[in-house]
Amino acid sequence: MALAYVARFATTAQGLGRYCRRKLRERGWEGRDDGVAAPDVDALVARFVANRYVDDGEFARARTGSLLRRGYGLRRVGQALDTAGVDKEDRVEVSEARLREAALRLAEKRRFGPFGSDGAPPADRAVREKQVAAMLRAGHSLDTARRMVEAADADTAREWVAAAEEETGREDR
């Protein structure tokens, strides 16, 4: 049952343990008094980790990339990894350039700031505040959200993202 689960779904060691315990509970193994011992879930999970059927680091890389491509920010990525049970040492360091790309992607997708119908940031303060709030809920920092929503035009926002990519490129050399 556990092997079929990890073959079908990306999961963490903690997620696999939760799944196995839930399935054992649903099948009536919890609290049995007939002398038959329930399977050792922790040993099973440890064996899956040792055989690399479950890899928390790889899960963190994949989930982080997926959420960033969808436009979510670092805080939201962290919440998803916390929920999945990924430890701090298994997490991926995210560059400023990737965070800005995610903010740009969200602004384009949701038509925030200069990506709206008229190509300029909204004149109405209440609309700008709602857009900033939506970006904050998506996990972006206040500075990033304001910078994206209040950009003069779409090219300015894209240049801001490109500047971070250039800085990241120089750091890699």
Rank of each mutant, 00 (worst) to 15 (best):
Q131W: 03
D124I: 09
R70C: 09
A62N: 15
R170S: 07
V77G: 09
R75C: 06
F112P: 00
K109A: 15
A2S: 12
A126E: 14
A162W: 00
A2T: 12
T83Q: 08
G169A: 13
R98S: 14
R110H: 06
R137Q: 14
V149N: 06
Y53H: 12
E26D: 14
M135F: 13
R158L: 04
L106R: 14
W160V: 00
G169Y: 05
A10R: 15
S95I: 11
P39Y: 03
A152G: 14
L106N: 01
A13V: 02
A43L: 05
F48P: 00
E159Y: 04
L24H: 08
G119S: 01
G116N: 15
R146W: 09
A138C: 05
L142W: 10
Y5M: 03
V132C: 05
E171W: 03
R63G: 04
L44H: 01
P39D: 10
A50Q: 10
E159W: 01
P121M: 05
L16S: 06
A163F: 10
R137D: 15
D87N: 08
R76T: 02
G71T: 08
R61S: 11
A7W: 04
A138H: 00
A84K: 07
D34N: 15
V6M: 07
R100E: 06
R110P: 02
D124T: 10
E150W: 06
G65L: 10
R61P: 07
G73L: 05
R98A: 15
R32E: 06
G15M: 02
R27E: 07
C20W: 06
K88D: 13
M1Y: 04
R100N: 05
M1E: 13
D33E: 13
R18P: 02
R22T: 02
G116Y: 08
R110I: 01
L3Y: 10
S66D: 15
R98E: 15
D55N: 15
E30H: 08
G31A: 12
W29Q: 09
R173E: 13
P122T: 07
Q131Y: 03
V36F: 11
M1V: 11
G65C: 06
F112E: 05
R137S: 10
Y72K: 12
E150M: 08
A152R: 12
V149L: 11
E101T: 02
R170Y: 03
F112N: 07
E167D: 15
D87W: 01
V86D: 01
G65E: 11
M1H: 11
R170C: 00
R63S: 11
A133E: 14
E30N: 07
D33Q: 12
L99A: 07
F59K: 01
L16I: 08
V77M: 10
A97V: 00
R8K: 15
R70Y: 13
E96N: 03
A120E: 12
E165M: 02
V6Q: 11
G65W: 06
A138D: 04
A138M: 11
A154Y: 05
R173G: 11
P122C: 03
D40Y: 03
